[in-house]
Design a protein around this nucleic acid. Structure first.
Lengths: 203, 203, 203, 203
DNA sequence: CATGAATGAGAGTTCATTCAT
DNA sequence: TATGAATGAACTCTCATTCAT
């Protein structure tokens, strides 16, 4: 395996970033397994050789892409929590904001989301990033809630549940996986549980 | 593409079934992309050519396998609901049984589960089967609960949430994805929400 | 192909020499085909571009290296002959010295020797250098022996045989190619023939 | 690495043999490093995939080729020894026959010989075959001479020297490596030494 | 019906050389 | 002069599928 260089010059840094951005985009769009290194190079406007100067292999591009976009993409709820910590706001409002904001901020295409999730199951390294990211987001939320000093019973485990229920709802809603469901009802039910998970009070 | 025959003779039917069983097993174990058709043929005890008499392509074997094993594998909770419908049992007991039974009945290896989930995101046809299966299971559960005539507010959407929360807990627990979590606590929290989802009563 | 410059400045001459020394060393150690120009540049402490200012291609570095090191490396026997020409010494002693000195002076690693020999067969230019070198060494030895004026029948052809038999013994002995052989016996036999080749007297 | 099959059917055996024959021929002609698997496939009249059914990699073809042709090519002297063992013949005649027969039987082109020798230095596996072959030929010759019961002092080591001196002469002569040499004289000198090595009598 | 040898396009990756800075 | 990032053709090897036997 040839040496991987870390770009120093401004133009090189931009080049590396372009490969990540464009490469990740293409892999998400067409599917990781349906895109080859020549495609990525062409789409990124660089040569195939250039790719292997900054990345040890094709997967590394996908992983870098996942890392960068994971925060923006998968857990936009964190910023709502942060905003919540600094403002007066009921838990009900918080939950509504999270659900609505998450849906709005969802920039990944259906294919991109599917590809990301697939890789997450297929590849240990990608899975690791997802798990790590969840741990970080969970910890931060717990900390925010603790600082706010109103709900004493928050636990990592509740927040884990919270995050998964939010994500499940979002992807159901956005990608409309089951046409049989009444999404208004699902919204109502989901919200109740989410509120409970934060307040730990009778629903 | 050559014509695919539907087996009529008993021996042929058995052959097709063997290919599905063994092929699916191997693909789950080694990974769909790491198993080739020659491997499947060998492992199934047939010739490579034989495979293409019963299946249009490699993916079809995986799909057939998914269909057959999905019920046994992913939603063993259905049988608990069925048992519940015929016996005296509290909702708390029901939920406990579901969680414990699901964990016990989980026969898929970690690799197999990952592979199945990955394909579900990767491939429209596999996704379709998953979604279809969920709809069916959901409907059956709703019907069972309605028949039992105790909880009026059950909805497909609640059951969807129910199923997803159960699965999430099981896979977290079995495959121990996040070492930071306290699974006893997670169990407690999960159970409360599941009970609520069925009873729709204050937690 | 870009123009190759001949260095004039002292520092440039040193740079060229460094590339030959270090590049040849590296190619011998790792193998000509397993070393790339970036490796050579790094190992020599110059830039890749710099290499192509002094050498038309990668092979040229190997050839220059071969030329410089061939005398020191492959035929240390010449200096023994020269020493012999100026001192009282029997032919038996001469041959013993040659064999022992050659083994001692053998500085090339096994890999380096293999690489050098391989290139000699692989590449006309390298072969040419080897052949040229042999001719020169042979001529010098013949001249020395003629000057000594004791053995009238020495011929280039005898000396060719002499050199090849010496080399064969040395490489057999040093790199121990055939574990089945008794090297003491081989030494005895080899020595007898070498003595004959110089004296042309009954063994 | 995919499984390598051993051909059973007659046509398949022929196919494998054709790949060895044609592939080895091509690699010798154009050079091992200048021929790729697609070239070999085309030249052998098979598909690239077919090659990898019978050989684990490109090198294996070269090795098989070397094995098969080594006896015919490098040591035709063995058959002269065998013939000698069954007939009345002087040692001088034997040596003459060996030298002349070896030159006649030399079917490898210059390039092929160079390529073979190069690989022998470049690759451990090829070297192993050469060494093994020499051991076998040496042992057989020693056995033949012992059976003939006339020369008591023959040793593996003498025969090793014998073989190398023969080969050196042949390749000097055939490929005319050094235009400065008088090959008649070289023939005379070589013959004397070879005769001595067998008879161990005063030259 | 069954076989399994054959196919060949396509995969990821390397590296000698160039040339803008 | 010196640099080292960029090039892109070429490499070995794989595998879903076909089809002559």
């Amino acid at each position: 395996m040839s040496e991987v260089r870390e770009p120093i010059k401004k133009s090189s840094i931009k080049k590396k970033e372009k490969i990540i951005k464009k490469g990740f985009e293409l892999m998400c769009e067409k599917g990781y397994h349906n895109v080859n290194s020549v495609d990525i190079a062409k789409y990124s406007g660089v040569s195939t050789g250039c790719i292997y100067q900054y990345f040890p292999d094709k997967k590394a591009i996908f992983i870098e892409g996942s890392k960068i976009y994971l925060k923006d993409i998968c857990f936009p709820m964190l910023e709502v929590f942060e905003w919540y910590s600094k403002n007066e706001m009921s838990v009900e409002e918080l939950v509504s904001y999270i659900l609505e904001n998450s849906i709005q901020k969802q920039t990944l295409s259906y294919k991109a989301h599917q590809e990301l999730m697939s890789m997450c199951y297929l590849d240990q390294d990608v899975a690791q990033i997802f798990n790590q990211n969840e741990i970080e987001v969970t910890s931060k939320i717990v900390k925010i809630l603790k600082a706010k000093n109103c709900f004493k019973n928050n636990s990592k485990e509740s927040i884990h549940l919270f995050i998964h229920i939010v994500n499940d709802f979002i992807y159901e809603k956005i990608y409309h996986k089951h046409s049989e469901y009444d999404y208004n009802n699902m919204y109502k039910e989901t919200k109740k549980i989410l509120v409970y998970l934060l307040k730990k009070e009778a629903l």
